[in-house]
Design a protein around this nucleic acid. Structure first.
Lengths: 213, 213
DNA sequence: TAGATTGTTAATCGATTAACAATC
DNA sequence: TAGATTGTTAATCGATTAACAATC
């Protein structure tokens, strides 16, 4: 990355999307692409694509363009996808189970190590080959297993307490599916999913009949 | 809403959040709030809050502030949450089931009418009291039941075809959980969830140790 | 070399913040 | 009326787009 300059979040949010399209190109056997061609594909301006990439280094070659595979690898590495992340999920209800399943199938590098539940009926069972443990064990489990990411799939009322425990136990990031905004120490990154918010803004657009991203 | 002026998407995306906080205040019995107090709570500047709200009308009262319940109702109505939406989910796997469950519990106004699947083992069963039908029936079902919203919980490879069918059959909006960007007619609104993208940008922030929203 | 396309600086556009007059 | 707080205009800030010199 370029010296000390901090990258805007708008840029970071676009990186996974670049990566998805590059992956697709790779699959199709394309090995070179220009910012212009990428623009036609993704829908960002060629100018923006070059600006975005140049925040991290000059990955292209004048007169040629970008090497698809090399660029894919660069972006993966910028995002930290060359590392492995150990995760736990709190809340083994429908959503927690779905995330457990979804994540382990699709995302090499993100490993769900355990689920946690307050409901005693679920504690002790296995879901998708992953143990469901009692929430009481959450903190020591995170500590003992060097868990990187905590995933919150609880009700909104329980979410902040879970986030506190996770932060205390030393997770580096929280992926939050509960409908609240969490307060966490600065050292912990948070990604909120807020499904209802998305559905609500969809409702707005439906009534206005506008296409949007 | 103010005459013809079109509201930026950034504003729309903040509305569900305002609404969440107002709901919380309502629950606590607070009946009046100033933009300043709301700012302390939500984290947007008081100035931004007033700007946002004034896109839709003057809901406040000088020297007093905003009436919590009235403002909550206004925002709900702007978002179109005073209407009812009939929805179908395509893909009755883990994620589809979780969304079916999650949505019917938490969101009055959003009704999941049916699930659809290609896997014959699932067709015919009920999930959470909702019938699982064969994907072949998708188009006529949407037409016959005036479905408003289609929810896509399929693999990325199937998603575009499903979106085409949904659009053809006349849905007004698509809530897309598949990891692709859909092409739909202008008359159809799309809200993408792209779970992996979120996880990937979380990975970035974990490695930079930055708090972000 | 000529053509193409990047990397980067400069211009524009839009969104956020500040300021303040209007008014409850 | 005096105090508070909105609604709204003006100033600032940041992000996107355009332009072009560098260079493969």
């Amino acid at each position: 990355m370029k010296k000390g300059s901090k990258i805007s979040n708008a840029v970071i949010k676009r990186l996974p999307r670049y990566r998805r399209y590059l992956n697709e190109l790779k699959r199709k056997g394309v090995d070179k692409i220009s910012s212009r061609e990428l623009s036609d594909l993704i829908g960002y301006t060629a100018s923006q694509i070059r600006q975005d990439l140049n925040n991290f280094g000059g990955f292209g070659q004048q007169g040629y363009g970008y090497n698809v595979e090399a660029l894919y690898n660069e972006i993966s590495s910028i995002l930290g996808l060359d590392k492995e992340y150990k995760m736990v999920i709190v809340g083994a209800g429908n959503l927690g189970q779905a995330i457990a399943n979804h994540t382990s199938y699709y995302k090499a590098g993100f490993v769900v190590c355990s689920l946690f539940e307050v409901n005693p009926k679920l504690v002790g069972i296995k879901i998708n080959d992953i143990d469901v443990r009692d929430c009481e064990e959450l903190v020591p489990y995170i500590e003992d297993n060097s868990i990187d990411i905590g995933i919150i799939c609880t009700t909104k009322d329980a979410a902040q307490e879970v986030a506190d425990k996770m932060s205390f136990a030393g997770v580096k990031g929280i992926w939050n599916f509960a409908a609240v905004d969490l307060e966490v120490p600065e050292t912990v990154a948070v990604e909120n999913v807020h499904l209802s918010d998305g559905l609500h803004s969809l409702a707005y657009h439906i009534n206005r009949n506008h296409y949007f991203e």
